[in-house]
Design a protein around this nucleic acid. Structure first.
Lengths: 147, 147
DNA sequence: CTTTCTGCAAAAGGTTTGCAGTTAG
DNA sequence: CTAACTGCAAACCTTTTGCAGAAAG
């Protein structure tokens, strides 16, 4: 397959799959490779099309099921503001994961910031709310797309 | 119609509609009343069902179109994490609007916090990103649902 | 009256489910 | 070999589009 890079992601993801008792299959490997090759979120149909270009056919139903599994294992995230999936790029840290989505090139940058989480919890608490999870997705321009 | 309260919201929303050059119609009034009566986000189909209970029938297509318009006018927000719409409860302030969604009762509380926005911008800037909009939706337990 | 808006029909998308056959280990 | 997984067909749900008729102002 062409420019599917980031072997490291695929390799470690496969290990996670294995050790969680799941099988290594062609569809799972292909979806991981496709996700590893792109920085912008992709929908199940995007993934299917991308794979098709490499002459690899997967049923979109299979892609849905693979993504569901990968999400459970925290290997990929669903990005609500753009309706697509990206591979997780953070070593499991502390706070919730947030996303910066470039409105120009579509590229996504993931972050995790404990102090932001703390501030969010405090803000919620001030309103009588006990926050358990923070969804943070910011849109704007990435470094490369600013003039 | 039964418990559709918060007349104030409906009244001022109708005024906004009017002054933006839109007509006051039965569907628009009904959707506003329904949204005004609930604190949890509702989908177009939820709204249709709720209205049906009051023996008011609206085509779901109409509801979609009304919601689209109300969203443009910033009278309602779409909450991505739960896939529904809520009426806006904030006087137009400064920062982006965020949401606290109770995972137990579904109720939503809206907030706008300038210092959170500032922190979010700074965090993004540190990553070379120029943030223009912040999506913040936190889930947890509201005051009433904590033990 | 005229333009905007709604309802209906239908299409277009996206997502889920069931089941028979395939494949990983 | 056997349990887990995939592909296909079909159902289901959500959202969009086009158009003729209704209604707001």
């Amino acid at each position: 397959m062409q420019q599917y890079n980031d072997k490291k992601f695929v390799k470690s993801a496969l290990k996670v799959l294995r050790s969680a008792g799941h099988r290594i299959t062609r569809p799972r490997r292909l979806v991981l490779e496709a996700l590893g090759s792109r920085e912008a979120p992709m929908s199940p149909y995007d993934l299917q099309k991308l794979l098709q270009e490499g002459d690899e056919h997967l049923d979109v139903v299979t892609i849905y099921r693979v993504l569901e599994l990968l999400q459970e294992l925290n290997l990929v995230h669903k990005v609500l503001s753009v309706g697509g999936y990206v591979r997780c790029r953070l070593e499991d840290g502390n706070g919730c994961h947030g996303y910066l989505v470039c409105r120009s090139c579509g590229r996504l940058q993931e972050f995790s910031d404990e102090s932001l989480c703390r501030k969010e919890d405090e803000l919620a608490a001030r309103l009588g709310f006990h926050a358990e999870h923070h969804l943070s997705e910011f849109s704007g321009l990435c470094a490369g797309c600013q003039v």
